[in-house]
Design a protein around this nucleic acid. Structure first.
Length: 271
DNA sequence: AAGTGGACCTGCTAGC
DNA sequence: TGCTAGCAGGTCCACT
């Protein structure tokens, strides 16, 4: 589910309300991707700080350390009162004096991991190798072009890999490539400097637009207030196989790259 | 080093 | 109506 816009939308929807709260209890459901890494009871009494985001990870300062959270494919966070008991897909509750932060994640690819600090393991290990933030001033066509040099993978897969630029998942990688007119199958190292400029700009534009719309809700994404996003209604190619391209009318194509679906317009997007 | 494919897990939908 | 195959927003790991 969650790409950068969904993760950031989630962060904004609870960060202000949880900052300064005190942990009163921690409840674990079924195992997530990795073990929590600490005894839940030790978090009681800890003060919560300002939630931050790095790529698709959230960092929540808690006491003398913090929690690194990832929403995986199907995760979402809710914050507030929880009179009803945990449902079958609720696998982590951080109960505080201001409400409960709850991770709901049917597929359990998500994670909540305790770390002593953001720059200490295990958090630092998980974040090592992440590329630039797309809204970082250092991320531009020049950076992209330099980083793609010599790489033979398809540009779509290079965007998804996250070691050059973070935040783009399957939806926004497809949309940014459409917006910049690049065939997703193009060898990464063959994308010209001018097209890297266009791609970097398109990626930022698409992510900013999605952020404005509260992200995309394909099936079950919600922010911590329970609000759905609406970017999916504006997608030019994602999920539109067989439907006419909004720019030229050519049917949108679906192909598979790296075991993921790619959607593109064979007329508007060229190698 | 870079590229590829499998793994993790559950739910929903289309098609027979 | 019921079963099955295929698909889904991510990313780590082992292997070539």
């Amino acid at each position: 589910m969650p790409e950068l816009p969904e993760v950031e939308t989630t962060r904004r929807s609870f960060a202000d309300r949880i900052a300064g709260a005190t942990v009163t209890d921690v409840r674990l459901g079924k195992p997530l991707r990795w073990p929590l890494g600490c005894e839940p009871a030790t978090l009681r009494g800890a003060r919560i700080g300002a939630a931050a985001r790095r790529g698709k990870y959230l960092w929540l300062p808690v006491g003398e350390g913090g929690l690194l959270l990832h929403l995986g494919m199907s995760g979402s966070l809710a914050f507030g009162e929880h009179a009803a008991g945990p449902g079958v897909h609720d696998h982590f509750d951080l109960v505080t004096d201001r409400g409960t932060l709850r991770l709901t994640d049917p597929r359990r690819f998500g994670a909540v991991v305790w770390s002593r600090a953001l720059d200490a393991p295990p958090a630092a290990t998980l974040l090592a190798g992440l590329g630039l933030e797309p809204f970082d001033a250092a991320f531009d066509g020049a950076h992209l072009h330099r980083a793609l040099r010599g790489r033979r993978v398809a540009i779509k897969q290079a965007l998804l890999a996250g070691d050059i630029v973070v935040g783009a998942g399957n939806i926004y990688a497809c949309e940014a490539l459409f917006r910049s007119g690049i065939d997703p199958r193009t060898a990464a190292g063959r994308v010209s400097r001018a097209r890297c400029d266009a791609l970097a700009a398109a990626l930022r534009l698409i992510l900013a637009q999605a952020l404005d719309l509260g992200g995309s809700t394909l099936r079950d994404f919600r922010d911590a207030h329970g609000m759905a996003g609406s970017f999916q209604q504006h997608a030019a190619v994602y999920g539109r196989a067989g439907e006419p391209c909004r720019a030229c009318g050519t049917p949108v194509r679906r192909i598979v790259q790296g075991q993921r679906s790619t959607f593109f317009c064979p007329h508007c997007q060229r190698r």
